[in-house]
Design a protein around this nucleic acid. Structure first.
Lengths: 155, 155
DNA sequence: AGTGAAAAACAATGGCG
DNA sequence: CGCCATTGTTTTTCACT
């Protein structure tokens, strides 16, 4: 399942994560390859799972999603069962964009996107805090987003 | 530039952010519309900027990017010029996936993806801290990522 | 606002150098 | 890996409701 990537592959991946709407011929122009070779390499990269999926990136504000927040969650009683329930819950919540366990004094960091502060308050007070495992929640609201492209750095 | 979205549009956007590789005919099956209507609506949504771009989502680990970190940055001397330089710098850094100004005691939160801890250390010590505006940096490393799909919640 | 069919563009494959 | 030709799909446009 693993694969050796050469310079063409890396360039192709970089181009595709920037703009997956390019045709194989256009991609070929950018990276210096023929369209048919681009097609073959793409298939390999998709099969190998290096390209996970293709996605449309949407404008949150145009969809009324005005609030992005980072929510740090500290768990209290570290029972396996409660922790498991908490993890299942955040994974299933559509407002949770990202969820990671972190080093440091906060157990989990959630990135949450919602229409307004009322919706954020609802999530914190009515969904997160009632969980048995949750001891403490601390939210910070993004006032300004300088960058949010989530483009991986490819050399 | 603004547009009225009906139920078809919302379903179409939801389907496209999940999987932009679907053909218009497949999308039509999912949302209950003919391929030609899907094509017309897509064009509208693209022109209106609601669909910002199409992207390939890549597997970070397959590309050797093993470390995700959240770095909170506190600025010291709040001179406009130093803050501007800081903002330009983080915006230009490819390792910075996201950068937001936050409410609370941390001025900026950066999501950073790098190959290893050495690269993270380099960014913090040799790029961030030498900036005049930067007073304090605190990094937390993601030990486990439960969710990282960045799919917007569409009702 | 929608369908269905035609025309144009594109992707994917195979053969050859 | 480039180039070319072929085939099948897909997108887009058009006529019509």
């Amino acid at each position: 399942m693993t694969i050796a990537l050469d310079g063409f592959d890396v360039k192709l991946l970089a181009a595709l994560q920037n703009n997956a709407a390019l045709t194989n011929a256009e991609l070929g122009d950018v990276i210096g390859l023929s369209a048919s070779q681009v097609s073959r390499r793409r298939q390999k990269l998709e099969e190998a799972g290096i390209i996970r999926r293709y996605r449309a990136a949407l404008d949150p504000e145009a969809l009324g999603l005005m609030v992005t927040a980072y929510v740090g969650v500290t768990l209290g009683a570290h029972s396996r069962e409660n922790a498991r329930k908490f993890r299942n819950m955040v994974t299933a919540m559509p407002e949770v964009q990202e969820a990671h366990t972190l080093t440091g004094d906060v157990d989990y960091m959630l990135k949450i996107v919602v229409p307004d502060l009322k919706a954020l308050s609802h999530i914190i007070n009515d969904e997160l805090l009632p969980q048995e495992a949750v001891h403490h929640v601390r939210s910070s609201i993004a006032m300004e987003t300088l960058k949010d492209d989530n483009l991986l750095p490819l050399k």
